[in-house]
């Protein structure tokens, strides 16, 4: 099952994650992200989490593990639209200093519509 889609636009490399993100799924995703990041050298590496139903510390590891490489080539990391559970988990690992958590308007409107 497809767990991620990678797309580049306007200096952002957007990694859209879907479904359940655990150690098993992370292993299949990681190399593709790194390859795309080195190819595009984006301004930001964005993890779009609005469609993630489950994530454990392996997902956290995927995001944090990109930091050293991203930092080296001047790429910032953005986590976009995490659900409350995932945002709390990110905060537990004290990541606020090294990456940005963002909630876009589109996803907020969706929430209202629900």
């Amino acid at each position: 099952m497809e767990k991620s889609r990678i797309q580049y636009s306007d200096g952002e490399l957007i990694v859209h994650l879907y479904g359940e993100i655990d150690h098993h799924s992370v292993c299949a995703i990681r190399n593709g992200i790194d390859a795309a990041m080195y190819e595009k050298r984006p301004k930001s590496l964005v993890f779009e989490l609005s469609d993630v139903d489950f994530m454990d510390s392996s997902g956290l590891g995927l995001i944090l593990g990109r930091y050293a490489k991203a930092n080296e080539i001047g790429t910032g990391i953005i986590v976009r639209n995490p659900k409350l559970r995932q945002e709390n988990m990110l905060k537990m690992a004290h990541i606020q200093k090294i990456l940005t958590i963002q909630h876009t308007e589109a996803s907020q409107n969706e929430k209202k519509a629900e």
Partner: peptide
């Protein structure tokens, strides 16, 4: 201990025990 891992090069982040505990 939070953030302690023996496998940092495999993108482990050392939060497993903290999560189980919380």
């Amino acid at each position: 201990t939070p953030l302690f891992t023996t496998a940092p090069d495999e993108d482990r982040c050392g939060m497993g025990f903290s999560i189980m505990e919380s």
